[in-house]
């Protein structure tokens, strides 16, 4: 497997590879998301308890699970870059952080908009909401650290250390928040029961989930390519690429 993976450790190869990947990924994203969202908004049945507010679920749950998944991906990338000195992993971690932060924000906002009609309030200090908020803080810390360094390679290393410290802390934070929540919160808020989903709700959910996952992959690819360029700006292949780009722009202007 390592032999097969090896060429992709070359920035030039992976730059062009992801460039070829992006059209396919975005086409698949458009396909799955348009089917999934339409299905979820118009054709999926309303929940027998929550009515049509349940349609937020098709947005909220994929965003929440992707926000955590992206953090894990970022931690794996940080780990590989630290152990094997694999510079492209830093670039991918830097590409993932803003995407993860955006999806965390989406999960929080949709959670609030779902909570208002269901719980009667925009925000409760529910264990899940609270730990999602802390996850957002962790993401923002990583992004801020990335921006604070002039040198991209240093920024990647520093943010990698922070990501790994964060990933050790996430289970502790999650556990402590859950424990704190059960201790402090009265039983005034009835938790939403999670009945097993019916098939005609599961399918649109799967489409939405896959669509959002593909969307995340597409955006990460786009950001990954600019991170590669920024980190390899003095390499001959980047110079050639930029020169070509300039020529094209000139031709377009003429």
């Amino acid at each position: 497997m390592w032999k097969w993976l090896h060429p992709y450790a070359n920035p030039e190869v992976s730059y062009h590879f992801t460039g070829k990947l992006i059209p396919w990924l975005s086409a698949l994203t458009a396909l799955f998301l348009s089917i999934g969202i339409t299905w979820a908004l118009a054709f999926a049945p309303a929940d027998y308890q929550q009515g049509d507010s349940f349609r937020i679920f098709y947005l909220h749950v994929p965003a929440a699970s992707l926000s955590m998944g992206i953090y894990v991906g970022m931690a794996i990338a940080a780990f590989t870059s630290m152990v094997w000195q694999f510079k492209l992993a830093d670039a991918s971690a830097a590409a993932m952080a803003p995407v993860g932060a955006t999806f965390t924000a989406i999960a929080l906002i949709t959670g609030a908009a779902w909570g208002k009609p269901m719980w009667g309030t925009w925000w409760i200090w529910d264990a899940r909401l609270t730990s999602e908020l802390i996850l957002l803080f962790l993401y923002l810390g990583v992004i801020a650290l990335h921006n604070a360094f002039e040198d991209k390679n240093l920024a990647g290393k520093a943010a990698g250390i922070l990501t790994l410290v964060g990933v050790i802390n996430i289970p502790i934070i999650k556990y402590s928040v859950e424990w704190w929540n059960t201790l402090h919160q009265g039983s005034t808020v009835s938790k939403l029961g999670k009945p097993s989903m019916s098939i005609d709700m599961l399918w649109p959910f799967l489409f939405c989930f896959l669509g959002f996952a593909l969307l995340v992959a597409t955006i990460i690819c786009i950001r990954f390519r600019s991170e590669i360029l920024a980190r390899n700006s003095i390499r001959p292949w980047v110079r050639a690429l930029v020169a070509e780009h300039l020529l094209q722009e000139k031709n377009n202007a003429v």
Binding site: I134, F137, G141, A144, V165, N169, I173, S176, V177
Partner: peptide, 12 residues
């Protein structure tokens, strides 16, 4: 920046 990085870790 320091407070942004450190305070979430202090929560537990």
């Amino acid at each position: 920046l320091l407070s942004l990085l450190v305070l979430p870790l202090y929560i537990p």
